[in-house]
Amino acid sequence: MGPDDTTLFPSEAALAAFGDRLPLARQFADHLVTSGVERGLIGPREAPRIWDRHILNCAVVAELVPNGARLVDVGSGAGLPGIPLALARSDIGIVLIEPLARRVEWLREVVAALDLSVQVEWGRAEESAVRRRWEGADVVTARAVAPLHRLAGWCLPFLRTGGVMLAIKGASAPDEVARDSSTVQRLGGGEPRIERCGAGIVDPPSTVVVVERVPSRARRKRG
């Protein structure tokens, strides 16, 4: 079965998320369940739930992205959440950062096939050269990459003051916030908070941990 099978494709939800760019989102789904599976970017068992669990789960995070934002997607993997966000919001500028060459090759192929103005960076978020190229971002996203305290160390340096890290998490989010809040604040973030995105589009809504990059003066006061 392909991604357009009526039992798998949530047409109303997808239309709400992507509007007139829904045909491109369907093309992306096709890439994921064909070459994405063949080349090991997603597991074959994920194909039947590619829309709700992956594409829509990421696209609804656009609710938290300001207009015209510069966005860095750390550890992009199969382009999640970066490509669904690019499809949902043509007004934002996106770079996908991915350390594995085979994934970077696939990402560049898909970005070209979809004719998206998305850049793909081969490198690690913790590398100083990568940070210098993409610092000053408004938003940094990450999904299924690392625990919150580690993500903060990788993601916050990309952000301008007042920019936000959006970490897509699952049921572990409250525990991670409780455990890692003080570390996140030492690394330059504000107090983490949990937001739910996509009510009425995805069930359950996507869970996102939001951390603002705070001024260094505010960090000194806390310390």
Rank of each mutant, 00 (worst) to 15 (best):
residue 35 S to Q: 15
residue 57 N to R: 10
residue 94 I to F: 05
residue 97 I to N: 01
residue 208 V to K: 06
residue 217 R to Y: 15
residue 76 S to T: 05
residue 78 A to F: 03
residue 159 L to P: 00
residue 151 L to W: 03
residue 128 S to G: 10
residue 40 G to F: 15
residue 144 A to Q: 13
residue 42 I to T: 04
residue 171 A to P: 10
residue 168 I to D: 00
residue 69 A to R: 03
residue 73 D to C: 06
residue 23 P to Y: 14
residue 110 V to K: 02
residue 191 E to C: 14
residue 186 R to G: 13
residue 33 V to H: 09
residue 135 E to F: 14
residue 145 V to P: 03
residue 87 L to F: 04
residue 4 D to N: 14
residue 212 E to W: 08
residue 218 A to S: 10
residue 1 M to T: 15
residue 191 E to M: 15
residue 5 D to T: 01
residue 83 I to V: 02
residue 188 G to S: 06
residue 179 R to N: 14
residue 143 R to V: 09
residue 59 A to K: 06
residue 133 R to T: 04
residue 122 W to Q: 00
residue 215 P to V: 08
residue 5 D to I: 03
residue 166 L to Y: 05
residue 179 R to V: 07
residue 179 R to Q: 15
residue 182 S to N: 08
residue 109 E to Y: 13
residue 105 E to P: 01
residue 59 A to M: 07
residue 14 A to Y: 03
residue 60 V to Y: 01
residue 60 V to L: 05
residue 145 V to D: 02
residue 124 R to W: 09
residue 183 T to M: 12
residue 154 W to I: 04
residue 101 A to G: 07
residue 192 P to N: 08
residue 182 S to W: 05
residue 138 D to Q: 06
residue 103 R to E: 02
residue 94 I to C: 03
residue 119 Q to I: 00
residue 59 A to V: 01
residue 86 A to R: 03
residue 82 G to L: 06
residue 94 I to V: 06
residue 186 R to Y: 09
residue 68 G to L: 12
residue 15 L to I: 11
residue 34 T to N: 15
residue 79 G to H: 05
residue 119 Q to N: 08
residue 3 P to D: 13
residue 112 A to Q: 08
residue 129 A to W: 11
residue 129 A to E: 15
residue 129 A to T: 09
residue 131 R to I: 00
residue 139 V to Y: 00
residue 41 L to G: 07
residue 36 G to D: 02
residue 108 R to E: 13
residue 98 E to T: 02
residue 211 V to C: 07
residue 211 V to Q: 06
residue 168 I to L: 08
residue 114 L to Y: 09
residue 119 Q to M: 08
residue 174 P to W: 11
residue 60 V to G: 04
residue 209 V to M: 04
residue 76 S to H: 03
residue 86 A to F: 03
residue 179 R to D: 13
residue 14 A to R: 01
residue 206 S to V: 12
residue 187 L to Y: 02
residue 62 A to N: 05
residue 161 T to Y: 13
residue 130 V to Y: 00
residue 207 T to R: 09
residue 113 A to K: 10
residue 64 L to P: 11
residue 43 G to Q: 15
residue 105 E to H: 12
residue 92 I to G: 00
residue 179 R to K: 13
residue 138 D to F: 09
residue 181 S to G: 12
residue 180 D to H: 13
residue 62 A to S: 10
residue 30 D to K: 07
residue 68 G to R: 14
residue 94 I to T: 04
residue 180 D to F: 09
residue 178 A to P: 06
residue 111 V to I: 10
residue 200 G to A: 08
residue 123 G to F: 03
residue 151 L to H: 06
residue 217 R to N: 14
residue 29 A to L: 02
residue 194 I to W: 07
residue 7 T to G: 12
residue 1 M to D: 14
residue 169 K to H: 12
